[in-house]
Nucleic acid binder design. Structure first.
Lengths: 229, 229
DNA sequence: CCCGATTATATCGTATACAATTTAAGCAGA
DNA sequence: TCTGCTTAAATTGTATACGATATAATCGGG
């Protein structure tokens, strides 16, 4: 049986990533405890854990609120992803196993299925399979500290998936990138893998910036506090 | 007044970095609480926070123990430092302020003083001023996520400072590196700064590996568990 | 003498109670 | 009406109690 702390952690995390708990919203321990049917203790554990992952911020004697990122921080996160995931792809190319490659193919199949669902692409499906795809590569890189450094940076795209504009061009380009990444990893070419991965993330950033210049900052900045005034 | 959780956190962290709590040692909440004069609650908070920083590992219904790193993980950590601190130096070169540069000079002065203390170098002084030196650069880089990713990687050199061999050559080389880093940052040369910083860390790794081939792994692997058997 | 089951101990997981602190509200006075 | 102080409410910080779980020790059988 999983502990209450664990379940509280996942429940709150999911609520934040789903957008039910929005940036800036306060998260009183009592409230969460009431919603989930636990006491404050496990909720406290969960909030502090989320704090260390950067999803919530805690002020002494005041409590937790959902982190809201500024436009500048969004750019900082992306810059980090480019560096770290590029490195991950490089390492993975040298040591990825057939099993991991197979898993990668499966996630990519799921991704393509979600993309070509009619009449509209399956946004949740895209986000989930995409995350698994990237996570598999980082895992294959086999550096525990790299994994820990990257994980929090994936919160951003998940929080913002609802605001993302997935044009047909963008999806087609991502599809090509995914396939080329798989090719580079299969071929065991570290530098190739690194550069394609960087391209993949940079291109996504460009689409976010050009197609929806304000959506990102809006999504990030929107706060419960502001709304109340 | 700082909270008990905060103080417990710093107390335990210091004990680990000082080597009083060694790798593999169990840290029962009751025991720590007794030593520090707190109840279990704040100690629990502290241990979970240290867990997320990687200094302790927690198993459900078993408790916390001080993390011990394998030789491979030590290498992974260093590889991460090379990448992240190189990037930090690059960013810092473009935006460091005169105040930060001044602070950097002060930490370097302190470092040189500690190095040339007679009759023997001041190991603690070296470790502390060195950490402040590096931390100032990362802070000047102005990327919050970069800071968070690097901080846990500094635990390693602090835990191992007592085992490190600081030969005169090594200290002299580090001195030159520090000065060149300052020069590159002053000149606002990102690429120069990045490469010197990488050199600095790689060189340190080489000294650790060559001068004391087993000390590192010994320090890392030595465990309370093993000793008891 | 060794091995498996059972009890005992140590430790954590969670709930709850109360103290401490911060924020917000209300009120008096200028 | 606005400012400053006092009071009230909300929320966290900490201690403690009890139940749950894993590890270690003990005991009986082979």
């Amino acid at each position: 049986m999983t502990t209450s702390s664990e379940r509280a952690y996942h429940a709150v995390k999911e609520a934040i990533l789903d957008g039910r708990y929005r940036g800036g919203m306060r998260l009183p321990e009592d409230m969460i405890a009431g919603e989930l049917g636990f006491s404050r203790t496990p909720v406290r554990d969960a909030l502090r854990r989320l704090n260390s992952e950067g999803l919530v911020e805690i002020a002494p004697n005041f409590g937790a609120r959902v982190t809201q990122w500024s436009q500048m921080q969004l750019e900082e996160m992306t810059a980090m992803r480019i560096m770290l995931e590029g490195y991950a792809a490089q390492l993975a190319a040298a040591k990825i196993t057939p099993e991991e490659l197979d898993k990668l193919l499966q996630h990519n199949d799921a991704w393509e299925t979600a993309v070509s669902r009619s009449p509209k692409p399956d946004i949740d499906g895209i986000a989930n399979s995409n995350l698994r795809f990237h996570r598999t590569i980082v895992s294959a890189a086999g550096n525990k500290f790299l994994t820990q450094a990257i994980e929090p940076l994936w919160h951003l795209p998940l929080v913002m998936k609802k605001y993302a504009m997935f044009s047909r061009e963008r999806l087609e380009l991502s599809r090509q990138h995914h396939r080329e990444i798989i090719a580079a990893l299969s071929a065991g070419e570290p530098q190739w893998a690194c550069e394609v991965m960087r391209t993949h993330i940079v291109a996504a950033r460009a689409f976010d910036a050009e197609l929806a210049p304000d959506a990102a900052s809006e999504a990030a900045m929107w706060s419960e506090t502001d709304a109340a005034e």
